[in-house]
Design a protein around this nucleic acid. Structure first.
Lengths: 218, 218
DNA sequence: TCGACGTCGAATGTATGCAATGCGCGAGAA
DNA sequence: TTCTCGCGCATTGCATACATTCGACGTCGA
């Protein structure tokens, strides 16, 4: 939002996703304010925003804690992400501008480079940008915030670290292919690749699918 | 969140949904604070929350405005809801207890009664309970919170008011059929009805689908 | 010794004061 | 007359002070 509030939110997000604050850990407003060098007000705003993104849980008069996912199933998260981001990709194909395409191309290329170099943090950042850009094209506040929530939830499990070499290369290839599909203004293609992209990621993280796990869901 | 903040958020939500504040209208913090009888702080929090729900748009140093074209979202929202709640219904079929079933039956019956009597507010409440109960059975925090957000977002545009007589009856019938499917422990059936339930609602609200609108999404 | 109640402390929620940014209006020049 | 520059006002963002609530510790009683 504003300088202080934004910085606080970004900083906290980074720390939570980076594992600096562990799931279930208490986040005191006063303490955070001191740490971040701002007053409690922007800290509060930042915490509310992170709560909206599903990163922390706020209980009245009890404060904020890093969200715990005791029975969060990555399985469902990726199924939903595939569906939602697939829709986003499809609609994006109709609205994407040439400038957007060039930007996406840049990101995909840079992403491949960083991925090859093993720069995990950079990969995470660029990956967020890539998906965020596409999701943003849908121009739907609800949709983008939904996806953000899901993405954060999955990132909390440090998904990217678990990728093996094949999956890593596939992921990079998918990004480029998505750009190609968008450049061709081919919504169905873009959606299909996005599905593959996320199902591939899920498979890498969770191993083989149990029989009939997705039965009836597509 | 807290008393004042909650009251402010609820009040603003009601007013926006009720059309008291028109799309694009500016919402000044000071003015709202005076109107609601609280200070600016809880008003600010309420506005941020509504922004997270997609009801208002906040621009830094420029304030909050009621969102302009919410209906653009409804299409995507219902598509996602159908998918996610379909999954929830399917998994619920495996886990639902007899007590849950009886409770769902009660709600569905009461829902039909209130719907026939035209008690819109009650219908809202019971409908939320019904879907919430089913979604809760999935025991996935991420899933339920995602859906809650979407439900929230779709409720807001006074969706139910727009239902015609046929659609209203179909909706009631769907609820009962979902209970029947769950009682039969038939996940595929439950999922299918839930899809129909939400697609029917969407159709009632948005009219005929444009050609190929859902192409490739199932 | 165990349990319950009361008080104290810390942290959140709310209100208000101060600073900074954006916007509109008006005056002056071309 | 119109465009531009600049100043003043209003509103938002941040900081701080006050109120309220929750939890913990200690004491008293059974």
């Amino acid at each position: 939002m504003t300088a202080a509030s934004d910085r606080a939110a970004d900083e906290l997000r980074t720390r939570i996703l980076g594992g600096e604050y562990r799931p279930g850990e208490r986040l005191g407003e006063t303490e955070l304010a001191a740490t971040l060098g701002v007053s409690r007000t922007p800290v509060r705003e930042a915490l509310r925003r992170l709560a909206a993104d599903g990163l922390v849980e706020i209980t009245t008069n009890k404060g904020a804690r890093v969200v715990e996912h005791p029975h969060a199933d990555l399985d469902a998260i990726f199924a939903i992400r595939a569906h939602v981001e697939g829709i986003a990709a499809r609609t994006a194909a109709e609205r994407v501008s040439d400038a957007d395409l060039d930007r996406l191309d840049e990101i995909a290329t840079e992403l491949t480079r960083c991925s090859d170099a093993g720069l995990i943090e950079e990969v995470y950042r660029l990956n967020s940008q890539f998906h965020g850009l596409i999701n943003g094209l849908s121009e739907s506040t609800v949709l983008t915030s939904t996806v953000n929530q899901l993405i954060h939830a999955s990132v909390l499990f440090r998904t990217l670290h678990a990728f093996d070499e094949d999956a890593r290369r596939r992921s990079c290839a998918h990004h480029h292919e998505i750009v190609a599909a968008l450049r061709a203004r081919d919504g169905a293609w873009a959606e299909a690749v996005m599905h593959a992209h996320l199902f591939s990621a899920r498979a890498s993280l969770l191993g083989p699918r149990p029989r009939g796990a997705d039965e009836g869901s597509r």
